[in-house]
Design a protein around this nucleic acid. Structure first.
Lengths: 387, 387
DNA sequence: GGTGATCCTGCAAAGGTTTGCAGTGAAGTA
DNA sequence: TACTTCACTGCAAACCTTTGCAGGATCACC
């Protein structure tokens, strides 16, 4: 770390060989100093480390990858980075990966299934595994791709593959029960993309909960999972005569509130709205959004853990393993379901039955129907529950 | 592409050698088929390509990187992925990179300068260049790191290095002029982080514009560039007696509006608020935020272009180049300034002087002071202007 | 038929690291 | 002393690709 070297260190790439020369040992000893320290004499080790530090040596991961077959990289394939649902997931995944000395490639598919497939192929040779977040392609294609590179799927259930799921079914149930408890008996479900697993789960759970609570549930959709998708159906919602709406996600819920506002329909006085995801934004709109919080960060962390876990066993690229059904180790296919939590804020209020008993124009100030208070939502724990 | 092979293709990694064997040529011919097609006989080429396709061959980028010295990867170092300012930039950069057959590593520093430095080191050997977005470390450290790996800096001016800047000075000027035009003569500038280049530019430009317009400008801050940072100074803003505020960014502006609201101060009736960035969120809050739109996506694209441009010349890791001032090619150090645009929405209204002349309670509906109408903001063009 | 040019292909080294194997010397045991 | 064990280190092959060089075939031209 002398001043002289630090100035020019990077003009010439310094390799394991330079360190070997400087410390008077063979390159293999230098290599072992980094990858298997217990095999080298402590004295030698400190000397080598000192020289390495002095020269500014950093192992070349490409060369290492070439021989070990492990890149220490993972791929993260995202439908749309700009969708506020994903950044917390990306952030958590990147952080978790880095703690385990992995780097992450991020790729955006623009919600295009074709791009998803191409990206898996393109990344396959360059990563030890791929996280597929809310994929839009078919299950069978996912299964096929998983033979090329270890995969963990987030927000989608694929049998035989490790998946990280959020229990939106439970969340939808809680939301419907919340609405029914407020006196709503005509409720709409604002559906998302048809190919979305989350969408199917929500529909099923919401229908069951509505039936159990004696409420009528209207299905609207499919719709684009965006703000525009939400505002576009405002008119339809008004005409349908429902007094409450559960939206596929927060963006749609916010769009819907916008759209209703433009039609002169007030939220929550005339229509209650519940979203899903609890994106940061949902705390900042007015009214603040009642929503089903999904543990996105926990999902990112968990997915990385699962990926790295299944990676450990076989050193990739093991040649000569007989194809077909080798009776050796089989990849773990555990599926993890993360809990969701209903966060009650200001976009839901008493329904038609309860309305007469309510003081008029109470849209400001602490809402009486909010148990925890708007500022202290019940946060999602993200505890993992194997299913 | 037969069914038989596609099933097991990835169990055994297929290399250039397998393709060579299958097509009856030497591996170098296969290599050339991909990296220099014009050097191989068309007939041979189609045969090789067919075999490659059939076997599912994909070039191993690690091996290629090892010999060419170019990884075809770039690094993207971000202060905070979850900050809504960044995702559009990441998305654009990733897209642009991919179009040029590059993949991008994304890393999050959590606003920690130490993490920034470590990440540059960690990524250096694995990428052809790094994009440093809104770095928090010192200029001198950035310069030093740039000797290790080609760097492009976004949102920060470092002499001698290629930079992509947004003209927030112009934006701040436009915002102040807009406010003065509305009749505000006591304005506050809600400052951001002290180490931020943007922050300094804004202060300077706002001060000049205020002086020119005969308005009094109060500097508040530094503050955290977050919603909380904004809401925390609401009380201070009220006490200061200003009628308008220009905030460091949209998040702070939104936080401030929240905080003022909690104090019973209405926006824009009593205080006008202008943000900077035009994050998606700013269209969704109520009131919709008047803000200085920064061309984030264009910045991401431009930064990638500049990085790749300076990469082309020298094939990295050229050994034996004399250190010191080689009189050969010098890295391009062009600095690009992108234009910003003031987008007028609903969080700004007439100031004290103009107020009497205004119809009361006109907070809903199309605002008379909004030239383009709330739905059709003047969008940032992002035209590049070399400086 | 000889000369030269052109086009294509093969050969082999190189790039930085890991790792099985073998070798060295010292310490421990009989 | 002889033998084994042990800790450490060196040797060299291997990973997959690129690329300068040279050889071979073909063709045109004189």
């Amino acid at each position: 770390m002398t001043a002289a070297t630090s100035d020019e260190r990077a003009a010439v790439p310094v390799t394991i060989r330079d360190v070997a020369r400087a410390s008077g040992v063979h390159i293999s000893t230098v290599s072992r100093t980094f990858s298997a320290p217990h095999l080298v004499n402590p004295e030698t080790r400190v000397r080598v480390l000192a020289c390495a530090e002095d020269l500014g040596y950093r192992p070349n991961r490409a060369a290492r990858a070439l021989i070990t077959g492990r890149t220490h990289n993972i791929g993260l394939i995202i439908a749309d980075i700009a969708n506020p649902f994903f950044p917390p997931l990306i952030k958590a995944a990147e952080s978790q990966a880095r703690h385990r000395d992995y780097h992450v490639f991020v790729a955006d598919t623009n919600e295009d299934p074709t791009a998803e497939e191409e990206l898996v192929h393109a990344l396959a040779k360059q990563v030890d595994g791929v996280l597929l977040c809310s994929p839009r392609m078919s299950n069978s294609l996912i299964e096929q791709l998983s033979r090329e590179v270890p995969l963990v799927v987030v927000n989608r259930q694929v049998t035989g593959l490790p998946c990280v799921l959020m229990d939106v079914g439970q969340g939808a149930r809680a939301a419907i029960e919340h609405l029914i408890g407020l006196g709503h008996h005509r409720i709409a479900l604002l559906g998302g993309p048809r190919s979305s697993w989350t969408n199917r789960e929500m529909r099923r759970a919401a229908a069951t909960a509505a039936r159990a609570g004696g409420a009528e549930l209207t299905m609207l959709g499919p719709n684009a999972p965006t703000e525009t998708g939400g505002s576009a159906v405002a008119e339809q919602v008004r005409r349908s005569g429902v007094s409450a709406v559960l939206a596929y996600n927060d963006l749609m819920a916010i769009g819907l509130i916008e759209g209703l506002d433009a039609l002169g329909v007030r939220v929550p006085q005339e229509v209650s709205v519940v979203g899903v995801d609890d994106i940061a934004l949902s705390r900042l709109t007015r009214p603040k959004l009642t929503t089903v919080a999904t543990p996105t960060a926990a999902a990112g962390r968990t997915a990385v853990d699962m990926l790295l876990q299944q990676d450990i066993e076989s050193p990739r690229g093991a040649r000569g393993l007989g194809a077909g059904t080798a009776l050796g180790v089989r990849r773990t296919t555990a599926q993890v379901m993360l809990q969701t939590d209903l966060v009650i804020r200001d976009s839901t209020g008493p329904g038609p039955r309860a309305r007469p008993a309510r003081p008029p124009a109470a849209s400001r100030g602490p809402d009486p129907h909010c148990p925890a208070g708007p500022g202290t939502p019940t946060t999602a724990t993200g505890d993992a529950v194997a299913s």
